[in-house]
Design a protein around this nucleic acid. Structure first.
Length: 440
RNA sequence: GGGGAGAUACUCAAGCGGCCAACGAGGACAGACUGUAACUCUGUUGGGAAACCUUCGCAGGUUCGAAUCCUGCUCUCCCCA
């Protein structure tokens, strides 16, 4: 007993950790005491709505990592069953159901993503565990559910939840299906199941999950006379009011197939100063002191953007590995640093494509290139990059056109020498508009 | 059913026979500045190297000449029944 206490003094206080990082939104009374008393098991659920997770889920993943570092045992739950129903929390419309095939694929994808962050194979006593609620839900018949679970929770109680109220009140014209109404009870049953089978006493989730989580603790209290706890994290926001994790190009995913490490790194690098101060606490594992130092340093010389760079580094390495981070950094320097066309020419085809993923492309023939392509022609007729010769000339007059990162004048002629990786010519208007000419 | 107002470039909005590819504002894009930010300043914003061509709801007409005047049509808004 003495030894056990000792271990717990040495490890970090999980709740305190969340508190200074700004990750605590709501906590059920008694939770902190429970965590200090003994090694506790907690779970977080992940929705298999896509075959990978995006950075919105990163907070929850990091929470599991913190939890484990604090000496407790984390469970990641993949919602194979709940995904079949659709969580109404925070949604104003009835959700479309995924077919089973897609769902299975997504469950696998989400599992793979989680495995990259959390070690499920280790043999330490607080090793992480992954479960899929479909495994126990599939056994449960509707009648069993209605008798054994439904009996313990009143509709009045369920109706009082915000997720339900918002959908039933007069302003919502959509209504809510019985399926979605049931959701909180199904999630509540998950908690109950993990409580009874894995001694899981805590569920963590985003602030929109409070209602669902408390349905679980309520069920545990009534059905098993047990005490279970809840912690929610605030929604990660951006100072300018736009949605976190989204760009014009869509979500930022944790999978390289959906978001290249380069774009991933860029997302963090472009965070605003106020956001960066929050992100460094939320998304990195740096301790309080180094974080405060970095924030101080950043305020002294904001133009250096030490915060953004550090955040990008930490998270990209954690998500995609060191090599991917270094490539992303290299790519960033090529695009935004003072790189020359000879830098560009050192790139191999794959790296080049990664950097310019999603950049519009056009094809040209080798014969044309050997003859030499006039720059105006290349910008308009050959590529469609600019809408007319007039626009191309105007742009050239504005000194805004670059070929392979080097500004060119209107008498420039593109030749075979300009090829990158034997295949590409990089056209650019201004800083952000790229176009790739590809030799057929 | 009666009366009135209007339709102009990405949006708003001037123009009311030649000087109109069409004032101005916003947006967008670019240049300078900067931190791959914000702000500010500057430029560009139908096609064409140019001559010139195609645009001002649609179709005709008057005129040497029309976004501007006339006729018809389509659509929008307002007021009265």
């Amino acid at each position: 007993m003495f030894i056990f206490d000792k271990i717990f003094e040495m490890t970090k206080n999980f709740v305190e950790e969340l508190r200074w990082r700004g990750l605590l939104h709501n906590i059920m009374p008694g939770t902190e005491e429970q965590l200090q008393k003994e090694q506790t098991t907690a779970y977080i659920g992940f929705d298999p709505t896509a075959d990978s997770l995006h950075i919105g889920s990163l907070v929850q993943i990091i929470l599991l990592m913190h939890f484990q570092k604090a000496g407790h045992k984390p469970i990641a739950l993949v919602g194979g069953a709940t995904g079949m129903i659709g969580d109404p929390s925070g949604k104003s419309n009835e959700r479309n159901l995924l077919n089973e095939e897609t769902l299975n694929r997504n469950v696998e994808g989400v599992k793979k993503t989680l495995e990259r962050f959390i070690d499920f194979s280790s043999d330490i006593d607080n090793a992480a565990e992954m479960v899929n609620n479909y495994d126990w839900m599939k056994e449960l018949s509707f009648l069993d559910f209605a008798r054994d679970i439904g009996k313990h929770i009143t509709v009045n109680y369920m109706m009082a939840k915000d997720s339900v109220k918002n959908r039933i009140n007069a302003e919502s014209k959509e209504g809510m299906s019985f399926t979605e109404f049931t959701y909180q009870l199904v999630q509540g049953y998950d908690f109950f199941h993990l409580y009874t089978n894995k001694n899981c006493k805590l569920q963590i989730g985003g602030s929109d999950q409070w209602g669902n989580i408390t349905t679980g603790t309520e069920l545990i209290r009534r059905k098993a006379q047990g005490k279970a706890y809840a912690i929610t994290t605030p929604l990660v926001t951006k100072a300018d009011g736009t949605k976190f994790g989204k760009t014009e190009g869509g979500n930022i995913w944790l999978d390289t197939k959906r978001t290249s490490p380069y774009k991933f790194y860029q997302y963090w690098l472009n965070a605003s100063d106020t956001d960066a101060e929050n992100y460094i606490k939320i998304f990195t594992f740096l301790d309080k002191e180094p974080v405060e130092e970095l924030i101080f340093e950043h305020k002294e010389a904001p133009h250096l953007r030490v915060l953004q760079k550090r955040i990008g580094e930490e998270i990209t390495i954690m998500t995609h590995g060191k090599e991917a981070y270094e490539n992303a950094l290299k790519a960033s320097n090529i695009l935004f640093g003072r790189s020359t066309s000879s830098d560009l020419k050192t790139l191999d085809e794959q790296t080049f494509l990664d950097i310019f993923e999603g950049v519009p492309q056009g094809e040209i023939t080798k014969e044309d290139l050997e003859k030499g392509i006039d720059i105006v022609e290349a910008l308009n007729e050959k590529s469609g990059f600019l809408k007319s010769n007039g626009e191309a000339r105007r742009a050239l007059k504005e000194n805004s056109i670059s070929v392979n990162k080097e500004k060119v004048k209107d008498d420039f002629v593109i030749k075979t020498d300009d090829l990158i990786a034997d295949k590409f010519i990089l056209l650019q208007r201004g800083k952000r508009n790229y176009f790739l000419l590809k030799v057929k």
